[in-house]
Simulated scan of single mutants.
Amino acid sequence: MIDILLILVLSVLTIRGFAALRRESVVRREFGQSSLLDVLVLLYPLGPLVLLLGPRFIPAALVFLCAALLYVVPIFVASKQRNALECAGTDRVSSALEATSSATLGAIVGIIYVALAAMFVLLVHSLSSQQLGA
């Protein structure tokens, strides 16, 4: 149930972030920033799907690594773009900085979810592998 809710939340954050990034694409392009972040933002809803369906095909550790990469890479790209836009020193980049921040928000939510899911899996595994009270 919580996975479905998170997919919906990440979908909303994806749409808002993508729309904001596309609105500011002219300014970002003017200052030499690529549109890679636009594509990476569209991948946010895949994180919960990877966690749901991935263990059927690959080991759990790789599933969590793949899901985390869906959110860590956009944070690095957004950080580089934010630094470049802040160095521009003009007022025209303020809305582009806000768009970059909205894209980062979805990635942070995704990383928190992956971390909580990993801790839950480790907790359940550790409780099920030890005999309590013996």
Rank of each mutant, 00 (worst) to 15 (best):
L37D: 04
L85F: 06
V121L: 08
L122K: 08
I15H: 05
I112M: 13
S128V: 01
I15Q: 11
G89R: 14
V26F: 08
P74Y: 08
L69Y: 05
L85S: 02
I15V: 14
T100W: 06
T104D: 15
R16K: 06
V72C: 03
P45L: 11
A67V: 02
Q33H: 05
T90R: 11
V63E: 02
S128F: 03
E86F: 04
A78R: 05
V121R: 02
V109P: 02
R28N: 03
S101M: 13
Q81A: 12
V93G: 06
V39I: 06
D91L: 09
D38K: 08
R23G: 00
V72T: 07
R56K: 15
L42I: 10
L51E: 08
A118M: 02
S34W: 10
I108H: 06
I111A: 05
L105V: 14
V124F: 02
K80P: 00
A68N: 03
N83Q: 14
L21T: 02
F57W: 14
P59K: 14
L36T: 04
V63T: 01
R28E: 04
P59T: 13
Y44L: 07
E24L: 00
E24A: 07
V41L: 03
N83Y: 09
A84Q: 12
M119H: 05
G17S: 10
A96C: 12
D91W: 06
A68K: 01
L37M: 06
L62E: 10
L10H: 07
Q81D: 15
L37S: 06
S102P: 15
G32L: 01
F64Q: 01
A67N: 03
L105W: 11
R82D: 13
L52N: 10
N83E: 14
G47N: 04
A68S: 09
S11H: 00
P74C: 02
L127C: 03
F76G: 07
L53D: 07
L52C: 06
L85R: 05
L10V: 08
A68R: 05
C66L: 15
V39Q: 11
L42E: 05
I112T: 12
G110P: 07
A84N: 10
L116G: 01
T14E: 11
L53G: 13
F31S: 01
V26M: 12
F64R: 03
L37P: 07
F76S: 01
R16T: 05
L51A: 06
F18S: 12
L116F: 09
E86C: 13
A99T: 14
L97E: 11
S79H: 10
P45S: 10
Q81F: 03
Y71V: 06
V26W: 01
H125P: 00
R92W: 13
R23M: 07
M119W: 08
L65D: 08
S94V: 15
A99N: 15
G106N: 14
R22G: 00
E30L: 03
A20P: 09
F76A: 09
A84K: 12
L40W: 07
L10F: 03
C66V: 12
F18P: 00
V39E: 10
F31C: 04
Y71T: 00
S101L: 15
Q130V: 12
R16F: 12
L69T: 01
L49R: 06
R56A: 11
L123P: 00
I58D: 11
L42Q: 08
A19L: 10
S94H: 15
D38N: 10
